[in-house]
Nucleic acid binder design. Sequence first.
DNA 1: CAAAAAACATGATTTAAATCATACTTTTGC
DNA 2: GCAAAAGTATGATTTAAATCATGTTTTTTG
Lengths: 241, 241
Amino acid sequence: MHSDSVLIYFVLMKKNNHACDLKSCFLCSRCLPEWLPAIGANKKNIHFKKGELIFEEGEAVGGIYFLFKGKIKVHKRWGNDKQLILHFAKEGDMIGYRGLGNERVYPVTASAMEEVIVCFIDTPFFEATLQVNHQLTYSLMQFYANELQKAEQRMRNLAHMDVKGRVAETILMLKANFGQNKEGFINIALTKQDMASYAGTTYETFFRMLNELTEDGIVKVSGKSIGVLKVAALEKLIANL
Amino acid sequence: MHSDSVLIYFVLMKKNNHACDLKSCFLCSRCLPEWLPAIGANKKNIHFKKGELIFEEGEAVGGIYFLFKGKIKVHKRWGNDKQLILHFAKEGDMIGYRGLGNERVYPVTASAMEEVIVCFIDTPFFEATLQVNHQLTYSLMQFYANELQKAEQRMRNLAHMDVKGRVAETILMLKANFGQNKEGFINIALTKQDMASYAGTTYETFFRMLNELTEDGIVKVSGKSIGVLKVAALEKLIANL
DNA sequence: CAAAAAACATGATTTAAATCATACTTTTGC
DNA sequence: GCAAAAGTATGATTTAAATCATGTTTTTTG
């Protein structure tokens, strides 16, 4: 073994220890303790720079990812300049699970919104893990059931809710997912284009709606930060009536 | 035991035998053979008339249904006169599986489109079944993964595809799901309002789009029957470019 | 079987939201 | 550190699709 290889080996060790404690993620927390060493031996930590793709729509599925550091957006493209953002993933989230159906091709693109470290498990090992850990399979089934409910709720919103309602919903989702700091601003810095792409509208329309909400004293905006002032008013906008 | 009860008992027996052979449905075909008698003892056959609700959005989840006869539409309401149809279920389909997430409330309404017979399994027994039949749990997980992919695909279509494309998609979905008869018409009679509600548009717009497709010789319409003349032309309309 | 209720068919009108156009400001990469 | 690129900000214009209005035909049901 070259001294180079040894060096690389220790660097990876350090990263692994830093990134994954084999306890907290969706996978490790639901596995039989006896199986954890197998996971430790099979996981790979991978680093991505801002803007890099973790995987792309149409690409063959390699495995499943667990996000340890950074934020990732998961989106579907349309044409060559439109997209619908399905999810903003944060530390602890699972990524790539949409590729586990019959079609072994990713139906979405995942791109790093900042420096990202993921823990990667390839499909053959993940499937073996599911065969052995029944409680994990059951949890994953429940997880999918919940995601399906959310997706169909959003389908209906895209079909019938007006843009202002979807903007309100986007803001409330961000608040619920990322929390807010002491100044009352949501803890995530997104471009307005990305927020618009989540709401299923254009940048311009999103901007105008945000202006209206600001004028009505429902939200406050400062650069990339958005703060909710009147939750009830936002909830009223998304009310199904 | 009253003679009335005896009568009812035999009627139910007969119905059961007619409706369910404990072999072909999603549930029975994936269970351990040893478990089938338990299913036989716990399933209930229920009859619905046209227009009756199998369950309704917001109602507490009772269990899961397997459709043996008839057709059911699964939809989400908006306001009090709009809806988005998520699925047209036919013989063999599973219904009510959306209620299996954390929220134990149906997120959708299921209504009988004609005379319907379903086989009902209550949640406690279904969960026991999942705990015992790991392969079934795994299959169900895969099933959900596929449904999620389809839902997110449609989400993107509702956000970015034009109505004509969604009409084309609706027609191709119906053809793929229900097949066509010798005359080349799709084997399902739906109101245009229902087709429009699936495509996420209004009756009037759906009607106009269908007219355009007819004028261009892409489809043929005769009463409630629609026939596809040029598949490629429909596929081109839904092409993502 | 007749009356009421759905569903069908189409033209005219309105409207929400996308697109286009243009200028300024902040990031980012070489 | 500066040029290019990405993001922000807004007004003006267009357009796709919803809504409204009205008459007809088909289905359901008491």
